[in-house]
Design a protein around this nucleic acid. Structure first.
Ligand SMILES: [Zn+2]
Ligand SMILES: [Zn+2]
Ligand SMILES: [Zn+2]
Ligand SMILES: [Zn+2]
Lengths: 181, 181
DNA sequence: GTCAATTGTGTTATACCATAACAAAACTAA
DNA sequence: TTAGTTTTGTTATGGTATAACACAATTGAC
């Protein structure tokens, strides 16, 4: 089994009931698709997705839980590469510039972008239990924000929306725990 | 003139045209009102708004630009008080617990709450030019987020919405600069 | 292939943001 | 007053991010 799955907290053994959304998925495919998209986007733009940058992106995609810069640094070192903070921050800056990752502000952490191949204004739903951050591109939310900005005479260049709570899967887990207690 | 106005970037000399919103206001009143609200809320709750905490709140309300913890620390020291980081972080924690300030995640900075006397789910519109962060409590935005959460089976405990762009006043300033160039 | 120019990476040092742990002081309620 | 509680001071440390400069790899012209 691919080592990349080791802390993928969505992939769990046998959920007893089907979750409403975001059910267990083929995360190996997730990663492969993200890397393929990254490769083609960078090629098309003349941006250089070097081995280092590609490896950092792989480590970011290790799970759907946002990962901190120093954790990524440790993973690089576990790969046998010599690395210091600027190494990882430069790679993260490149990946963010290319729209391949996002920074989760409330966690000081980074996560792969689910919509790298198109412009979007994403929102994140972040589980306080398992840590998974789900990216959605909800145009209705963005429109409401844009409308309010308009009323204020405010010209929007971007937004950061992070919703905190408990994800669908963790609620099921809590019910199980609760019914046992 | 009150020294507290010294870096209040909304209060500027003679805007040539009236802004659509957020026009120059009596910031001394702003501060006084915030402190009065803080006092009565804390009294009602049995929370102790000590001199230190009150002074920190005053420094936070110095302007509508979010201010960093270490800047607040410097201001405390300028007051003649001996202070180290825990001093300011404990005061900030108290003020945040009481809902008197908010943390602006994209800036690692803190700002006074405009709606301390009632429960709310605020959004911030942050100007990349002048730094001013305007708090709004737009229930329509919150409703859209809640609706999307519902679709995901996600139970919301809170959200952080920070919109970046150029504020109304700074656009006018840019026009002036532009027409001169 | 060689070369110069550009871009990317390694390395050291440092700045900025935040908290742990414990001691001293101030406040509260008998 | 005195004991108990809360707040503040103090020292040390952990976590996040960048500046500055040297070296290596890549690119594109020749
Ligand atoms: Zn995205
Ligand atoms: Zn969860
Ligand atoms: Zn004001
Ligand atoms: Zn502005």
């Amino acid at each position: 089994m691919n080592a990349v799955l080791k802390d993928f907290s969505v992939a769990r053994p046998k959920p007893r009931t089907a979750p409403r959304a975001n059910q267990r998925h083929d995360h190996v495919h997730c990663i492969a698709a993200a890397l393929a998209t990254a490769s083609s986007l960078c090629a098309a733009r003349g941006a250089r997705l070097t081995k280092l940058r590609r490896r950092v992106l792989e480590h970011v995609w290790n799970s759907h839980v946002p990962v901190g810069a120093y954790e990524l640094l440790n993973r690089l070192r576990a790969d046998g590469r010599r690395a210091a903070p600027p190494t990882i921050y430069r790679a993260l800056a490149f990946l963010a510039d290319e729209g391949l990752i996002h920074r989760i502000e409330t966690r000081n952490a980074y996560i792969g972008c689910d919509f790298a191949d198109r412009p979007h204004q994403a929102q994140y739903f972040i589980c306080e239990q398992c840590g998974v951050a789900a990216e959605v591109d909800a145009s209705d939310i963005h429109r409401r924000i844009a409308a309010r900005a308009d009323e204020l005479g405010f010209v929007v260049s971007g937004h950061n929306v992070e919703v905190l709570g408990i994800c669908c899967l963790c609620q099921q887990r809590r019910v199980h725990v609760g019914s046992r207690a």
